[in-house]
């Protein structure tokens, strides 16, 4: 008995060590991608230029480009990648469905609807401060996301909630929110309409330090919370009956996790718009790497999500340069085939 315990403990530490190594390796990859991406774009900077500018001896124009445009933008990409990736993992844990993507089941469009309505209403009042609007956007998006999540939950409720009903109801609500969104957009002035349109297709090209500061607190608060709750997700993975047997108050914990997931997804949506499939692909790739245990999965998902966003953003800047493609489109074009592949191979 003791032997076996030691053995499994040994395996556990070995796996943890492997996870830590993998985590560090991925963080290294992320840093490299970050540097490469700093140089890429319409104006290409060499690595030497980047280095010079970073230590403060570059030209003024390079400093402006890096510190005012590229670095905040890349930081936003990293934060959004973390937020959406982890949110996806949480949703898949709650619904026990590996195909639950916050974008497909309507969380994004719910947040989007509230944000666009908010932008419309604030544009009616003269003298509202832009930075004030910017900082309140994640809250507005959060309210929208929670509304969407609750609607999905309530509408899917019929003496209990099954994963199948949850997803179908989510898809339906997504269509409804998108239709309402279009109606609100049409009420807007031309400039606001364009602003909303660019934002909605998932874009971070005008990300500034303001966007970084408005998103950072959300990630800093909710990422540790997710890690703290990861054990409960792991229990839920065993199936609800088992979880009940183990004494976890499933429904309450589920609800808390739902709020955490929505918070991370909605804050990311508020800054970067609706980027679909990121919350699906990042957790899946990570599951391939470290398996389904949430304590290991969440940190890896965060880094993988960040890498995916940085790579997609680099592509968005360079593919059709000097024109910018909204990064959400790149993620969709890469993510949708992966999703379809999953759909074909997954067991019911």
């Amino acid at each position: 008995m003791e032997m076996r315990n030691q053995k499994s403990a040994g395996r556990y530490t070995r796996q943890s060590k492997r996870t830590i190594k993998l985590f560090l390796f991925l963080v290294g990859v992320l840093l490299v991608m970050f540097f490469v991406s700093m140089g890429a774009g319409h104006l290409t900077l060499s690595l030497i230029d980047i280095f010079k500018t970073l230590i403060g001896s570059g030209t003024d124009s390079h400093a402006l480009l890096l510190f005012q445009f590229r670095i905040p933008r890349l930081l936003v990409a990293v934060l959004v990648g973390i937020g959406m990736g982890v949110a996806g993992a949480v949703f898949q844990g709650i619904t026990q469905n590996e195909l639950a993507d916050p974008g497909i089941i309507g969380i994004h469009s719910g947040s989007g609807l509230f944000v666009v309505m908010f932008l419309y209403l604030t544009s009616l009042y003269e003298g509202s401060q832009p930075w004030c609007t910017q900082l309140s956007l994640p809250f507005v998006a959060f309210i929208g996301g929670i509304t969407a999540a609750l609607m999905i939950y309530i509408l899917a409720w019929k003496s209990g909630v099954t994963p199948v009903r949850l997803i179908l109801v989510g898809i339906g609500l997504n269509a409804g929110f998108s239709a309402l969104l279009l109606l609100v957009q049409l009420k807007m002035s031309d400039s606001d309409f364009n602003r909303a349109l660019v934002w909605l297709s998932g874009s971070i090209w005008n990300a500034s330090w303001q966007s970084v500061w408005s998103l950072l607190p959300w990630i800093l608060i909710f990422l540790p919370l997710t890690l703290y709750k990861a054990r409960i997700l792991a229990v839920m993975q065993l199936g609800e009956e088992m979880a009940l047997g183990l004494g976890t108050r499933v429904e309450k914990e589920k609800f808390l996790l739902l709020i955490i997931g929505v918070a991370m997804a909605a804050a990311s949506v508020a800054v970067a718009g609706g980027i679909a499939f990121l919350g699906l692909v990042a957790p899946h790739l990570s599951r391939r790497l470290v398996g389904g245990k949430f304590l290991r999965l969440i940190p890896i998902t965060a880094v993988v999500g960040a890498i995916l966003m940085v790579v997609s953003d680099t592509l968005a800047r360079t593919l059709l340069a000097p024109a910018e493609i909204p990064v959400g489109l790149i993620v969709s074009v890469l993510g949708a085939p992966y999703f379809i592949y999953l759909l074909m191979t997954i067991k019911d």
Partner: peptide, 30 residues
């Protein structure tokens, strides 16, 4: 797909294909 498309899988497949094609058309449009 093994054992064909259930209603859920059909809806998901449709959403994914639509998302893909819509993204591509927006790129073309831009």
């Amino acid at each position: 797909t093994q054992r064909g498309l259930t209603p859920v899988k059909l809806a998901l497949a449709g959403s994914a294909v639509s998302a893909l094609l819509q993204s591509l058309s927006t790129m073309i449009a831009i």
